[in-house]
Design a protein around this nucleic acid. Structure first.
Lengths: 113, 113
DNA sequence: GGTTCATATGACCGTCAAGGCATATGAGAG
DNA sequence: CTCTCATATGCCTTGACGGTCATATGAACC
């Protein structure tokens, strides 16, 4: 289960992370909000914790989990080199659409008379 | 193999994507650059292609693969809500470091006389 | 102490995907 | 048409992961 990428490959774990993005939560809250069995939540939290995605604070009998930024930042960093690439694509697309617009304007002015 | 996240969970596939980020490549080039068996490369390329990460162009007997932006953009979009969160963390860290610096300046000025 | 609530752990099972090997396809060269 | 280069596909084995059920830990309250 080494890599951060493998961790977020699991849909339920992504749900948990997304939930924790808004605010920290206890295990029971996660269980109810996501409608998944408690043992499953605990296991996923364990994986997330060991991979550094979350950390737990003990509060009476509850454990409150909150996000830790590092692993997600790592993924974000991996994506960085690709961003160049797709912004270029989008620019090309926009230029293309601009040309389309030019053409359709000409087309319309031809149609009218 | 549904989600884009599962696709990039595989290290070899990430290597292929990173390689294609710099420029398009034939299967043989990928094979040699990454030192992985050809059948393995072909299989990963198939997965990547079916998930929309890459597309192939036929050029004589070669197939030249190039990146497609959409799936990586999707992942980037999923990360977006978390960015708020870690920039906040970094801000807090920076404020913390600023305070440290203040303190150590005082400390140093105490040490001197 | 015992009981209950909140969470964690362990064992078992099914599934699914990756790697390796052999082989198929298919284009081009002779 | 045949041979070869470039790539794809099928089959099989193996290992890992997630789900479920049962059970353990452990704090709080009586």
């Amino acid at each position: 289960m080494e890599s951060s990428f493998a961790i977020i490959a699991e849909p339920n774990r992504r749900s948990i992370l997304s939930l924790l993005a808004s605010s920290e939560r206890s295990v029971g809250e996660i269980e109810r909000r996501l409608r998944m069995p408690q043992t499953s939540v605990s296991k996923h939290l364990r994986v997330l914790r060991e991979a550094g995605f979350v950390e737990a604070r003990v509060e009476a009998r509850r454990r409150v989990y909150r996000l830790r930024p590092e692993p997600l930042m790592e993924i974000d960093a991996w994506l960085a080199p690709f961003r160049r690439f797709w912004t270029a694509h989008i620019d090309a697309l926009e230029r293309h659409l601009d040309r389309m617009e030019q053409t359709s304007k000409k087309g319309r002015s031809d149609e009218k008379p």
